[in-house]
């Protein structure tokens, strides 16, 4: 069994490092729809991929990945919304873990919106 002793060792190591967490209002918020519609369409792997990428690349001071409810566009789930302070909200639809990785690299890191996956590029009837 993995024990809490290992967690204590992590704490000892971390406490010597200065917290680099940015102010909340300065961080870009990444919201993944996690109501029944989102979960049933595959939101869990999308959210986990995004939070893994942010954590592994030590980007938690720049991005916060969290869940949101249903925004009434169930047919387009899994939906990911990117809210960057001072910029217009970008809504990505029908996401997968693979597409989420692309959004992370191109948009969040590279600064270029992946137009093909956005709600505004979808043919809404």
């Amino acid at each position: 069994m993995k024990t809490l002793e290992e967690l204590k060792a992590i704490r000892e190591k971390m406490q010597s490092q200065v917290s680099m967490r940015g102010e909340d209002h300065a961080r870009t918020r990444i919201l993944v729809g996690m109501a029944t519609c989102g979960i049933a369409s595959g939101a869990r792997p999308v959210l986990n991929k995004l939070s893994d990428l942010v954590q592994e690349n030590h980007m938690t001071d720049r991005f916060s990945v969290t869940q949101t409810g249903c925004i009434g566009l169930c047919q387009y789930e899994p939906i990911v919304e990117v809210l960057e302070p001072g910029k217009e909200k970008v809504t990505y639809i029908k996401m997968t873990a693979e597409k989420a990785e692309e959004v992370y690299k191109e948009h969040l890191i590279g600064g270029h919106v992946v137009q093909n996956y956005t709600l505004s590029s979808a043919d809404i009837k």
Binding site: L4, L7, R11, S19, R21, S51, Q55, E56, T60
Partner: peptide, 19 residues
């Protein structure tokens, strides 16, 4: 119990998330 040990250290800290 995690919170008690970690104090101010967040759960999404890479080392903690991996743990």
């Amino acid at each position: 119990l995690f919170r008690e040990i970690l104090g101010e250290i967040a759960f999404d800290t890479p080392e903690v998330a991996a743990y």
